[in-house]
Design a protein around this nucleic acid. Structure first.
Lengths: 158, 158
DNA sequence: CAACAATATTTGCTTAGGCAAATATTGTTG
DNA sequence: CAACAATATTTGCCTAAGCAAATATTGTTG
């Protein structure tokens, strides 16, 4: 089934363009409220993932965030230097480094989460609960489709 | 009305995280298909905007794409150097530079659009028409809210 | 067990993005 | 009209992201 047609294609309606815009504007919006709070939007997401137990190591974070390996190492370097994070070499598998928020990191995360959540609620003023839930569901579905597509491609390559 | 609560917040469900992921994966997906076709995903969006008449100048493109001024100038430099684009100083207002795709640019755009649209359709295989329309509508609404929020903030500052 | 593939992390290098200042031009206002 | 604010584009500088190679370690297979 074909949704988009090259002849009638309008960038305004394309998910490629729309997801770029949503991300750019969200990022700006978050950065603005985080300015002066020592961590960036990306660092906030990383810290959330650690707090929520969705990632324990750098490579898990990379996968969970679709983020670059090298960029992540350097982001973690910063968080560690700021005292928000501790790295510890795992004993079971000496390749992996286990990540853990420090008490200071936990406090910072709580402080910043309150700000970001407040801002999100502000921006979503005109959304009904149903709309927000549906947008969330459909974005997750889109993300899932893209991940499946990539997994399938990588599977074929190997 | 408050949708998100700092105590119960889960990054998995937050539009900040979800829009970042959707964009990252979309971008990767598009870049992959554009590899070897001389232009990047961002350049493709810029060319589409020009083609569709949604932007005639660099600053219009910046607004239409939420993109950085400096980055855009350099992106246009590339397109011009590749012969896909012409710049022409406007006569009415000598500050502005009018942008126009060359014949070569038009051809390249058609070629590449077909590829990207094909890939989009592939990825959206499991979406119903209704889901796609609703996702599109809600993303536009989100983008609008974020733009309004920013306009309001800038209005207050001035 | 030796050779090799796979995984985790880090580092170096290159490119793109973000921000502020510089330049040029236009509109506005006392 | 002179001074000043606003807009359009470009440039320089810095930080962050992307990519490939390096290192270390583990798992697999002949």
């Amino acid at each position: 089934m074909k949704y988009y047609d090259p002849k009638r294609f309008r960038s305004q309606d394309s998910l490629g363009y729309l997801s770029k815009m949503a991300h750019s504007l969200m990022h700006d919006c978050a950065d603005e409220i985080l300015a002066g709070h020592e961590i960036s939007f990306m660092q906030w997401i990383a810290m959330r993932k650690l707090r929520e137990g969705l990632a324990l190591t750098a490579s898990e974070l990379c996968r969970a965030m679709s983020h670059d390996n090298g960029a992540l190492t350097r982001m973690l370097d910063q968080l560690e230097a700021q005292g928000f994070l501790q790295r510890q070499r795992s004993e079971e598998d000496r390749r992996v480094v286990t990540l853990k928020l420090t008490a200071k990191g936990e406090r910072k995360l709580d402080e910043v989460t309150a700000l970001v959540v407040g801002r999100l609620n502000e921006v979503l003023e005109n959304f009904t609960r149903g709309e927000l839930d549906e947008l969330t569901r459909l974005l997750k579905k889109l993300i899932g489709s893209l991940q499946d597509w990539r997994a399938q491609r990588d599977g074929e390559a190997a």
